[in-house]
């Protein structure tokens, strides 16, 4: 199933604790994930820990699904970092700041692999 959501990105404690260690699997585990509440996870019909494809008008990325019942319905959260930034809105709206929060996203279950940090950045070269 597809879920249309509003995506926000931001800090988490595990993202921060691994921020100076971005080649590590710990950093990937901390940031290559998307949090949804259990109702939205039910709509997708997959379990937390499964891969999920996040597509926006600005890009696409595969991350791991995580449950967070603090999120309202239809809200997706990805910790700040290269996976989140693959799909955020680059428009600085005339004040220098890209759109890291409030991006329309389409979420779908996927079998595709989560790219490592190196492979993710290699897509840009």
């Amino acid at each position: 199933m597809t879920l249309n959501a509003i995506l926000i990105t931001g800090r988490t404690i595990n993202q921060g604790a691994t921020i100076e260690n971005k080649t590590s699997l710990d950093y990937q585990e901390a940031t290559a994930l998307c949090e949804l509440n259990s109702k939205d996870i039910g709509i997708l019909g997959i379990k937390p820990g499964s891969q999920i494809s996040v597509k926006t008008d600005h890009g696409d990325v595969v991350v791991k699904l995580k449950e967070n019942n603090g999120n309202p319905d239809g809200m997706a959260f990805i910790p700040m970092g290269p996976w989140a930034n693959a799909v955020v809105d680059p428009d600085t709206k005339g004040c220098g700041m890209p759109g890291f929060k409030g991006i329309k996203a389409r979420l779908e279950p996927t079998d595709k692999k989560i790219l490592s940090m190196k492979d993710l950045i290699a897509r840009y070269k």
Binding site: E20, H58, P82, N85, V88, I121, Y124
Partner: peptide, 27 residues
Amino acid sequence: AGAHFPADSVRHLARIPVVQIDPYWNP
């Protein structure tokens, strides 16, 4: 910038000469 800028900005960094001064290996 590699980790914390949107993809399009990183794409442009990938096209131009870049000097990094940092203790750590990162995007």
